[in-house]
Simulated scan of single mutants.
Amino acid sequence: MTEIDGTDAALVRAAADGSEHAFRALYRAYVRPVYWIAHGLVGDTADAEDVTQETFFAAWRKLRGFELAGDSLLPWLATICRLQAANRIRRQRRDRDRTAGQVDDTLPSTVDVEKQVIDGDLAERILREVEGLSPLDQDIFRLCAAEGYAYQAAADELGVAHGVVRNRLSRIRTRLRTTVEESS
Rank of each mutant, 00 (worst) to 15 (best):
K62H: 06
R175V: 01
C144S: 02
S170V: 04
V180Q: 00
E131P: 06
L63Y: 04
F141S: 03
T174Y: 08
T52E: 08
S109E: 13
R177N: 10
V31I: 13
T45F: 04
R142G: 10
V111I: 07
R28K: 02
R88A: 10
R128K: 14
A15T: 04
R61E: 09
D5I: 14
V180H: 05
E20Y: 00
D121C: 08
A48I: 03
D5W: 08
S184E: 14
E67G: 01
Q53P: 04
V165M: 00
C144H: 01
A38M: 03
G101N: 05
V12K: 00
A48C: 04
G6V: 15
V117Q: 11
L158T: 08
I118E: 13
F56M: 05
D71G: 13
D50G: 04
F56G: 05
G148I: 11
E157G: 01
L143D: 02
E124T: 10
G101Q: 15
I126A: 09
L74E: 01
Q102N: 03
A29Q: 04
Y151E: 12
L133R: 06
Y27K: 00
D121E: 06
D112F: 01
L136C: 12
P75R: 01
V103D: 11
R173E: 05
T45L: 10
F66L: 12
I172N: 07
R93I: 03
I80V: 15
R61F: 04
L136A: 07
D137P: 07
I80P: 03
D44H: 06
E147S: 11
P108A: 06
Q138I: 12
D112K: 02
S184T: 14
I126P: 08
V160T: 15
D104K: 01
T110N: 15
P108W: 00
L41F: 09
T45Y: 05
H162A: 07
C81G: 06
F23R: 01
A154F: 09
P33N: 14
S72C: 09
R125P: 10
T179Q: 04
D104S: 07
A48S: 12
V113A: 15
L127C: 13
L74T: 11
H21I: 11
E3D: 11
A69D: 10
K115A: 13
S109N: 07
R171W: 14
R82Q: 06
F56C: 08
Q138D: 00
G18Y: 00
E182K: 05
V31N: 02
A155G: 12
R61I: 00
Y149T: 07
A58C: 13
A86P: 03
T110I: 15
E129M: 15
R98S: 09
A15V: 15
R32S: 08
I140C: 07
T174E: 15
A15K: 00
V42L: 08
R93N: 14
A14W: 00
E20C: 04
E20T: 01
L122M: 10
I89V: 11
L176W: 03
